[in-house]
Design a protein around this nucleic acid. Sequence first.
DNA 1: CTAAATGCAAAGAGTTTGCACAAAT
DNA 2: ATTTGTGCAAACTCTTTGCATTTAG
Lengths: 142, 142
Amino acid sequence: MAAAADISFRALCEQQGIAVTHQREVLYEVMQSMHGHPSPEEIYAEVRQRIPTISLATVYKNIHLFVESGVLREVSLHHGTVRVEMASSDHHHVVCSRCKSITDIDEAELGLLPKHDRLPGGFLVERYAVDVIGLCAKCQQA
Amino acid sequence: MAAAADISFRALCEQQGIAVTHQREVLYEVMQSMHGHPSPEEIYAEVRQRIPTISLATVYKNIHLFVESGVLREVSLHHGTVRVEMASSDHHHVVCSRCKSITDIDEAELGLLPKHDRLPGGFLVERYAVDVIGLCAKCQQA
DNA sequence: CTAAATGCAAAGAGTTTGCACAAAT
DNA sequence: ATTTGTGCAAACTCTTTGCATTTAG
């Protein structure tokens, strides 16, 4: 459809070494048009309006591809299971985007950020959680 | 066992209006002794060494209770399903801990925080993700 | 033509729920 | 005595996988 968008999508696929399929193209367009933080099911519902025969599995597979290629990002990293910690000191997390390992970092080491108690719209702040996301030393060798 | 710890645990239960059970007490002690960011299964494995008959369901139920009472916190808020977004502008998230709604906030609105490209230990930073966690306007009326 | 992607259905992981029995208040 | 919690098993939700079929390069 939109030539520019199409060109950049093909370029993206080439760069990633993946095929340009109709499903992929529509998925990409739909995700660009969706605001917010959709779940796979929500994306599926949307894409289905244009490709009624698409499968949820294809949506999942392509979401993963797009996350790996950096087009999409997960709102919060999925560790497979819930992880809890004692609600103690002011620390934050360093998370490896590949192996999903979590280590702590003191707020002092991060450098302070200014904190609000309330946000416009009446949101009442309980706490700030900072994730430093990247690759741990081990995962850099791959 | 440790009198002081026991007293504070009983106080905690009273404050939360919940019963002081053996399972709860051991869970609490185990969680205090575990460093890191354990999953329910990991906590279960640990508690089982002291109460071999405890059930995973009980572990889950009590983890929820402890999270609600603020003793524990989830390392990253669990939205039930994966949520993705376009990897575009520098923005962060405002997340309601009750209804789990997510809204965006510009980095400029948060106030800049100093960013590192590398962390001691060789961690390579890709990005910073800040979650402002609290209660949205709607959830404050409950 | 051949390599990769899709769709389907089945399997898997993690988590929740209903209910009978047991323990706490 | 009454309420609350536990353990078990079944159910559920979300996600992944295997494989035959289809599509892209």
